[in-house]
Amino acid sequence: MNTTRATRTRRLTAAAALVLATGCGTLHASDADARPTPSTPTKTPCPGEHPTPSASSTAPGVTPEPGDHYAENHGFRVPLQLRGRPRCAGLAVAARIEKALEPLRERGDFAPAHTRAALLGLGYPEGAVQTYQNGPTGVGFLVLADDTPLLCVEGGLDRAATHATAFGGYPDHSGCDMPSGGH
């Protein structure tokens, strides 16, 4: 009887190990009913948007080396991505701003004061708009488009293009401007 009990225990242990090793309860690509689980992020396109690959959350041009804490120490400078309805609102605001500034670019008008006037003409209050010279033939801007929830738009125009990008502010910071220090 001890042999039977020992054999049964070994079989149960082997079965439990197999279940744990194969990920009991997980769906595989070969499963006919495979659907995204709640933990799987899905990106639903906003109206007028074409699906594109998602961008990395690492700051552009920063490839952290093992043991390098640059990205970790400068994470407070990485803008917060918008998700869901705020993301769609941000895309709409960015497109509206690009449309309003494109005539300036086409005329070759890269004066920060004219860019500011065009942004104020969209209805943003004085304190919500910043413009600055960006090189000899370019203008940069930052707009606080909404404060509940925080919706920021930054971008610029130069001879090549007009561009605007929406984001949700910065971690540990209440405004749209890039913080100068973290925690």
Results as ranks from 00 to 15, higher is better:
Ala161Ser: 13
Gln130Ser: 13
Val143Asp: 05
Ala111Lys: 14
Tyr124Met: 06
Cys88Asp: 10
Leu150His: 06
Cys88His: 08
Ala113Cys: 06
Val129Met: 09
Gly155Lys: 01
Gly135Phe: 09
Leu157Gly: 04
Gly156Pro: 09
Gly123Val: 14
Val143Gln: 01
Ala94Gly: 06
Pro79Ile: 09
Val139His: 01
Glu98Ser: 12
Ala145Thr: 06
Arg96Ala: 14
Pro86Asn: 07
Ala92Cys: 00
Asp147Thr: 15
Gly127Glu: 15
Asp147Pro: 00
Lys99Tyr: 05
Gln81Phe: 05
Thr137Trp: 04
Ala92Ile: 00
Glu126Trp: 02
Leu82Ala: 12
Pro136Ser: 15
Val153Glu: 00
Arg159Ser: 11
Gly135Asp: 10
Ala160His: 12
Leu101Asp: 05
Gly127Ile: 05
Ala89Tyr: 01
Thr131Met: 08
Thr115Phe: 01
Glu126Cys: 00
Leu142Ser: 14
Gly121Gln: 03
Val129His: 06
Arg159Tyr: 10
Arg77Val: 11
His163Arg: 15
Gln130Lys: 12
Thr162Lys: 01
Leu144Cys: 01
Val139Lys: 02
Gly121Glu: 06
Arg107Ala: 14
Arg107Thr: 11
Pro79Asn: 04
Thr115Trp: 01
Arg83Ala: 14
Ala164Arg: 02
Thr131Gln: 10
Pro103Gln: 11
Leu144Thr: 15
Gly108Arg: 03
Gly135Ser: 10
Pro136Tyr: 11
Leu144Glu: 15
Asp109Tyr: 03
Ala111Thr: 13
Pro103Ile: 08
Gly155Ser: 06
Pro112Phe: 05
Ala160Gln: 15
Ala161Arg: 15
Arg96His: 07
Pro125Asn: 07
Val78Gln: 14
Ala145Leu: 07
Gln130Asn: 08
Gly140Thr: 05
Leu80Tyr: 02
Pro86Gln: 08
Leu142Trp: 02
Val139Cys: 10
Leu104Glu: 10
Val129Trp: 09
Glu106Leu: 15
Asp158His: 12
Thr148Asn: 13
Gly156Thr: 05
Gly155Val: 01
Arg87Asn: 09
Gly90Val: 04
Leu101Arg: 04
Pro86Met: 04
Arg105Cys: 10
Ala111Trp: 04
Leu120Gly: 12
Arg105Phe: 07
Leu104Ile: 06
Val78Ala: 14
Gly140Met: 06
Gly135Asn: 06
Arg116Thr: 10
Ile97Arg: 03
Gln130Trp: 11
Asp147Ile: 10
Leu157Cys: 06
Arg83Tyr: 13
